[in-house]
Design a protein around this nucleic acid. Structure first.
Lengths: 221, 221
DNA sequence: TAGATTGTTAATCGATTAACAATC
DNA sequence: TAGATTGTTAATCGATTAACAATC
């Protein structure tokens, strides 16, 4: 009997960001033929608290873990995959076919994580009509009709910083609902539009500051 | 009189990740010749709470903001830049000169954020000796002597997932203290080594799940 | 049975926001 | 002066961890 997931409320943003890590580890166990896994093992592998892992899994697993034996690996892989929508692909467009855009466009890896980038857009006329992998590059003017025809809701921005807002505006006008932004600028969007920023300078600031602190504390002793 | 920054404790990880955003906005104001800025304006631009901005700035600014006039732009740029170490470059090595590695290696943008990647390593013999921008590519065996000679403490991992742990181990052996990891695998490191993971699947999970939720709630009405 | 492991309730911790007095 | 804006203290919110009873 599959458990009714009544409290899906407990799956927060931070839980959500850990789920792909669980998925990756547990599906590796699956290919290795391991049948069960405990929260303690997952936690140890990902450097997390076992209680946290159990709470996270409680929110997505259709079956409870069993005392003494832990979680059934095959079921867990299915449940996480299901929860994250890894089985049904979300389609996306990408705008800005520079070096980063090319990587994202040609890397089919994302299809394992539920995202299929179907086409790239660029304002550079030289790129129009060419193919990267099996992805076509189209002029910006084609965006609206394509997005509407395919009902695409996700847009990826990989243009230079100073063009990001204009591209964002165009995406919103075309009907895009969620934007994955690789430019280092805050985007202004209407309330109902989602934005996820990928901010390397922010990551770097955290890392290098931690480093400076740890060096200081070590030289102090 | 410069304020003694006694409570630098208040600068948390999340504050740290917002500082580059403040910096980017405020230094743009500076180039535009704006002399003062209020926490409200910064907050509005970045979609944050003004109180949060004031608290963040209190932790890094050498001078208090003035009621009615706000913060002096030039001073603020200096202070944030100083706090984040954007004036003195941290040197780093990069391992894995694939498509992503190339981008990071050739993008001098990071030097504005205090990081200078000095050299790339790869196990592919065809890459040895070539230059990308002004960065040489060296064989892995040269890592230890170079890291030690230059006293480098930051390593960037851009190899395929299944090689990341081995590269990480080698970095640690060479004396690297902080690792910026672009592979989607958890790295095992000794206690005193810092790791910052750049996890696209985690970001994606958050975005696409929010999207699914928002679509569901809209169709419900 | 005994003990490993679960799920849940309560406590703690940390970050954000609200309230407000101070002041240019 | 009046009012915009600051910095700080207290309240709230959210996420993690500790404690513990339940159970295979």
């Amino acid at each position: 009997m599959s458990k009714q997931n009544t409290h899906s409320l407990v799956v927060t943003k931070s839980t959500l960001s850990r789920l792909p890590l669980y998925y990756s580890f547990v599906s590796r166990l699956q290919t290795e033929g391991v049948s069960h896994v405990s929260s303690a093992l997952i936690a140890q592998h990902l450097n997390l608290n076992p209680v946290l892992v159990r709470k996270d899994l409680a929110g997505v697993s259709s079956v409870e873990g069993k005392p003494r034996t832990g979680f059934e690996v095959t079921q867990l892989v299915k449940d996480i995959s299901n929860y994250l929508g890894y089985n049904k692909l979300d389609e996306a467009i990408l705008v800005g076919v520079g070096s980063l855009g090319r990587i994202l466009l040609t890397n089919t890896e994302f299809e394992n994580f539920g995202l299929k980038i179907v086409v790239g857009f660029d304002k550079d006329t030289n790129l129009w009509g060419i193919q990267l992998g099996d992805k076509h590059i189209l002029p910006m003017e084609k965006m609206e009709s394509l997005v509407q025809r395919l009902g695409i809701r996700i847009g990826i921005i990989t243009v230079p910083d100073d063009q990001a807002q204009a591209v964002c505006d165009q995406m919103v006008k075309c009907g895009i609902k969620a934007i994955w932004n690789f430019a280092f600028v805050p985007l202004k969007v209407p309330e109902n539009i989602l934005v996820k920023n990928e901010n390397l300078p922010s990551s770097l600031a955290v890392l290098s500051h931690q480093l400076a602190k740890s060096m200081a504390s070590q030289s102090k002793q």
